[in-house]
Write a protein that binds this DNA or RNA. Structure first.
Lengths: 141, 141
DNA sequence: CTGGATCCGACCAGATACTG
DNA sequence: CAGTATCTGGTCGGATCCAG
């Protein structure tokens, strides 16, 4: 299969290197770097924390107050995962009582741009999505 | 549902409008449109399917072959969710045997851009992330 | 104040079998 | 070919108690 059917997409034009990578045959979701990264970002709290830390560094309790509906367990765990991936920096100040500050690493900061693009899209179209959901629900009935 | 309609502040800066929205107090993750949308996109297969359909429409079995490690159940379910959100169009051809074609709606196509931004980031930095993970693992030991 | 550890329910997701 | 239905295990995530 050597056919170049790129022109079929007409105006899409944004699939770019994804289609190329996918067509390269060596995909199969196992060695897929996208999934590897998106899996973490796709969880319930990661993106929210990243955007929050993108504004300014936060302390633990500060984050907990900013996100009322996160449990302490999930906050700890998500922060540790992000730290593990090199997106978040954790700094402990040996004060009494102890305080810990979380901030984005340069790698984490570089994610803000692309992530904002997606968030902007979500904000812009979530009305249409909710509408589509209601239409679908009423059709199903 | 008390007062939908989030202004979303058009689109200008990157992190700016998120911080603005967050600071506006009208956030709290309950009425957060971001979470509403990202929740669906963040699941295991949505983004993959969207990018795939962004290339060209696919039939059901075609998608299943393209993604070997998706179960038939998850494929059906994810497609239905995307259709419900108005991102994917489902067209049935009453042939024998029956065939169904899935394609992106204009709304779904508009997502390709922002999503590609994130995917490009993932592809570009996933090496750094894997490296960070190994460092973290060795430090933990 | 910042977490670790544990228990436990809820939901996600795969395997399998069956239908039109 | 394109699904639906059911059973089941694994993981996510909240609540609570405890420690430094």
């Amino acid at each position: 299969m050597a056919g170049e059917k790129a022109e079929a997409g007409t105006e899409s034009g944004a699939d770019t290197n994804f289609q190329k990578m996918f067509a390269s045959g060596d995909f199969n979701a196992a060695n897929c770097p996208i999934r590897d990264v998106l899996d973490q970002l796709g969880d319930k709290w990661s993106t929210l924390l990243i955007m929050l830390l993108g504004g300014k560094p936060h302390r633990f309790g500060e984050l907990r107050r900013q996100i009322p509906d996160i449990s302490q367990r999930m906050l700890t765990q998500t922060l540790r995962d992000l730290q593990r991936d090199g997106l978040v920096h954790r700094e402990v100040f040996p004060t009494v009582p102890p305080s810990v500050e979380y901030s984005l690493t340069p790698l984490g900061a570089s994610l803000i741009g692309p992530l904002s693009g997606l968030i902007d899209w979500a904000a812009a179209h979530h009305g249409a999505i909710r509408e589509a959901r209601e239409v679908y629900a009423s059709e199903a009935a």
